[in-house]
Design a protein around this nucleic acid. Structure first.
Lengths: 259, 259
DNA sequence: GCATGTATGATTGTCGACAGCAGTGCGACC
DNA sequence: GGTCGCACTGCTGTCGACAATCATACATGC
């Protein structure tokens, strides 16, 4: 039985895309950092992790170099690599870069009057709204980052999407690096609402302003400047993880995928 | 004799920053790609290049993975790595990403009324003007890319600068990948003049518009759509290189540098 | 007691080697 | 004559091993 997607004038077979072992390891490492399985500042024990992944040190080190290039790992000669710390001194640069990417993504969507793109962002926004009703800080944080990635991804620019995927993980690292633990603001949906409104009104400046304001709020939250000013905002804090011995799953070669 | 820069209240010694071997190799590879020593689409012969660099295959492969992450090298399982081809299908995404980064850099400079930043860009612009008087296509191309990097670098955001440094090399790869060879427009200074004017007038929208227009012109030049439309613009073409056997210099450990 | 020097253990950085795969050319077969 | 099959060659992907380096703890001396 032919596959339903088999098209008449389409080429008989699609080009197969085989991910290399290094690809798989790099993805695994990124996920481990994003999920917190690899804690901030923790050294990357090559022999141990290589054993957990079921590979040798060579491909692991090669994959790790990709994350070094992304800024997710830092390497010091003689001391190996550790999960990068995104301290307060880097917050301005990081979130300003996000403003650059996300506001331009919004401008692209608006310039094209791309209804489908807005619908995608709306979907992510709805999910954020539902999640924000609960008190799971991590889930809210995930939905938040998903929203921002969806915004950039909806602009349909592979280059910006790839850069954004790194920015997302770095943002997560900034939260993990915070002295106050993993905290999200309860009013997080409000600033997102401004972004959605800008998109729906096809108002690029309004969307860009909302994004800029949202990033300022994020930096304020992470630096704790709000508490210093005596401003009270309701937040949700994740109970600190046991930081126990994590375990990375072994690399499993996925079935040959078509692209 | 104490160094003149020794400050009274500064820490006695600065933190030393030792570049790792992988750092040096990665820089060497980037330069080789930027200069064209490693031609587009050419496979990365690991044994040969490792021998030229005076290192083993392991650190070379690790360094190469950094360039894979940057998109400067592409890796296919079983076929090793080759210098990436930035074909016409990727031009839109690439230059749109540059618009995002560069226009935001301009906005940052303008928002801060940063005179020193404008002066830096002006310096790069002057150099471009002088170079454009000649007919050395490659030199003009270098000055062009230097200008755009200077613009982003002047915004004083390490994150964006790092991303821009990759975008610069990718842009160079786009020129190398062009079927028409390495070509620069004679009227290249005009569109840059608009950018400079926007900065000097502290007019963010004017600067952003000029940047956007500049990128459109660049894409038009690379896709050859101008010729198709019968529009004639004066260009300078670099005579094709002999494509002879290049040679990468051996890795030399620089003296311990202070950061 | 504090600082300095030393031994130890673990971990990284690098290398050479080997198996396996991909591309190529030749030859056989339909 | 074209297609298929097969051996060959070069290269990659992966591994284990070794030396150099770093961090830690301990001992020594002032």
């Amino acid at each position: 039985m032919p596959h339903p997607s088999a098209h008449r004038n389409a080429p008989a077979v699609l080009r197969v895309h085989r991910p290399s072992t290094v690809d798989l390891i790099a993805t695994e490492l990124r996920n481990a950092i994003y999920s917190g399985a690899l804690a901030v500042r923790s050294p990357l024990r090559e022999v141990e992790i290589a054993r957990q992944l079921g590979v040798s040190r060579s491909p692991l080190r090669e994959a790790a170099q990709r994350l070094v290039q992304e800024g997710l790992l830092t390497a010091k000669p003689g001391q190996g690599m550790r999960v990068a710390v995104v301290g307060e001194d880097r917050l301005d640069d990081l979130f300003e870069a996000r403003v650059a990417v996300e506001s331009h993504a919004a401008r692209m969507i608006i310039d094209k009057h791309d209804d489908a793109a807005v619908a995608k962002v709306q979907s992510a926004f709805d999910h954020l709204l539902r999640t924000a009703e609960g008190n799971d800080a991590r889930a809210i944080g995930d939905a938040d980052l998903d929203f921002h990635f969806a915004l950039v991804d909806a602009a349909d620019n592979a280059h910006l999407s790839r850069y954004m995927s790194t920015l997302v993980v770095e943002t997560r690292l900034a939260s993990f690096s915070s002295k106050r633990g993993y905290v999200v603001r309860k009013d997080i949906t409000q600033s997102h609402h401004g972004i959605m409104a800008g998109l729906q009104d096809w108002d690029a400046e309004a969307a860009a302003d909302a994004i800029r304001e949202h990033m300022v709020e994020a930096v304020d939250r992470l630096t704790g400047v709000l508490e210093e000013r005596g401003v009270h905002v309701e937040t949700v804090t994740e109970e600190p993880t046991p930081a126990g011995a994590y375990a990375l799953g072994p690399i499993t070669q996925p079935l040959t995928e078509l692209s």
